[in-house]
Design a protein around this nucleic acid. Sequence first.
DNA 1: GGCAGGTACCTTGTAGCGCATGGTACTTCC
DNA 2: GGAAGTACCATGCGCTACAAGGTACCTGCC
Lengths: 113, 113
Amino acid sequence: MVLPGGAHSGVSQLRRGILQFCVLALLRDGEKYAFELVRELCDAHDLATSEGTIYPLLSRLRKEGWVSTAWQESETGPPRRYYTLTASGRTALSDFAREWGTFKSTVDKLLDQ
Amino acid sequence: MVLPGGAHSGVSQLRRGILQFCVLALLRDGEKYAFELVRELCDAHDLATSEGTIYPLLSRLRKEGWVSTAWQESETGPPRRYYTLTASGRTALSDFAREWGTFKSTVDKLLDQ
DNA sequence: GGCAGGTACCTTGTAGCGCATGGTACTTCC
DNA sequence: GGAAGTACCATGCGCTACAAGGTACCTGCC
């Protein structure tokens, strides 16, 4: 999938450390598989992402114990690995939401004044 | 200078691509030198930074042409290299402020809902 | 049958940036 | 003259987003 913005544009750097929590947020409402997550992140403009980003990211989330996975057959293609938010993943998400809030206001204060 | 949070904590990743524009923002009101910038960023909580971060960062800003520099003698210590925001630096800063606004609202939409 | 295209998974290598660490040099104070 | 503070800088590492490429399954078309 070809994306606008280039490899290491400014926006790309912004995603660092945030993208994983956006994925966790998308998983709050139920299990999803990787391809589906890529599409949803592309729909949410400014978060357009490729598979090369998502798969390693999901692998890290699994290692952290923030998601659990289960294979399911698909009627329209190859089998899918579905990701589900765990309890500790939910905690990590709400912890990050707090951090994000304070960080955001710090940056806003600097930029806006 | 020893900082809390560790080398590669979550907050550290958040700063990526943002820190340089916070520095530009600090330079809006007049020239400053590196050590001064470190102190001001430390005062602004959540942006505590060390010299090992600032000096390469300022070097990049200079290469981009976003800041210009001039040496000035100090009466209380070694000479200081003062950094001044250029016209293109000012443009880059306001461009980023727009990007930051849309990015912020995108993330907020995902996290808050 | 065979081939193109879509779906879905994954790996490998690269690059950038923040950070830890360490080094140099000047000044002040004890 | 030694310690502490100020001020500069360089080197090496680790994390993460991305590009590029690879495998396998299914459908539809010729």
